[in-house]
Design a protein around this nucleic acid. Sequence first.
DNA 1: GTCTATAGATTGATAGAC
DNA 2: GTCTATCAATCTATAGAC
Lengths: 199, 199
Amino acid sequence: MRLAARLFATQGYTATTMRVIADQAGIEAASIYYHFSSKEELVDVVMEHGAQSIVQHINEHFEALPPDANAVDRFKAALVGQMSALIKFGDYALAHNRLLTQLPDSVRERQIKRRERHQQLWTTVFDDLRTQGYLREDIDIALSRVFVLGFINSVQTWFDPKKGTLDKIADQFITMFFEGAAPATRPRRSRKKELSASS
Amino acid sequence: MRLAARLFATQGYTATTMRVIADQAGIEAASIYYHFSSKEELVDVVMEHGAQSIVQHINEHFEALPPDANAVDRFKAALVGQMSALIKFGDYALAHNRLLTQLPDSVRERQIKRRERHQQLWTTVFDDLRTQGYLREDIDIALSRVFVLGFINSVQTWFDPKKGTLDKIADQFITMFFEGAAPATRPRRSRKKELSASS
DNA sequence: GTCTATAGATTGATAGAC
DNA sequence: GTCTATCAATCTATAGAC
């Protein structure tokens, strides 16, 4: 139920009543119970759809890679894959991202288990980057991970398809992530002194 | 009401009932109406406290800077300021970040106006970085902005004070942001070919 | 498959005692 | 400032007609 996903995502679990969902769908609230046995089951299906869509979408981008793709290629594929999933299945993905803490215990536990596939997927991507030598030794891998995922998940709140494609955004992000935002012409900053003065 | 903030943040606006808040506070639901005239007023106060705490906290970090601080110093001050605000006033800040779409229209409009101070603050920081030459010309300032804020706002979900201070995390982030995650020993990647093959 | 009607529980909020 | 008691509205879910 696409409409339910949108409502859950924006209004929250409890605030989204069966009546409002039914209104949006042009039917009566009671009719929903022919398709879903309870509100819990409905939100569970919506959440699972969101989780599965994201993982599947990323895997499709992986499979489109040439066999000799390196860790950076896979990194970009995961990046574009998850970003486009967030845009394409926006309502489901948003529900999936924002509803976890609001759910009844039984549903929440099931969803946490489903997240593990997604977590594992990104762990592999970052481990490969490091073992293939694309990450500096002095950078914490867990930090760069939240760094990247924090960015990706914010995409839903600002992406405007009129202002550029996801592929271009991913390219800019990858450039920024690997090469940094500082201009090459400027010396690499005498940071030590500045930092101790400002902290 | 600190307890109300936590409940609003985790359960959402509608799901947080006056009775549950009262339970947590050890009083009866009716007693809340002596302090706040309605549930809307209560959530409005909580949200305003969150917004104000963050802006004020960042400004305190600004004021602690030496007079000759440059744009990068101010960048780090804003970074640490907002991160520590998110940790320190976690419940208020979380409520402030997640409740916007769930609120009744009247409350939501007021909160959106309050956000503008915060937006303006970061706009200034990034504009200064660019005019002082700390950002590459080929990087979109709006993109680097969501990049940074996406990271900062994710701090609440993973920060563990036992594993490192916010100041160290900010340092690592700044290094990664300006200098990039790629090791200096490796050539700056022959990306052009890889990209066209993988997209 | 969708409807009307309604049961039973819970909600935000008020009145009035202490 | 907090309580008990209660109201009107709204919620999820069910029963049974069509």
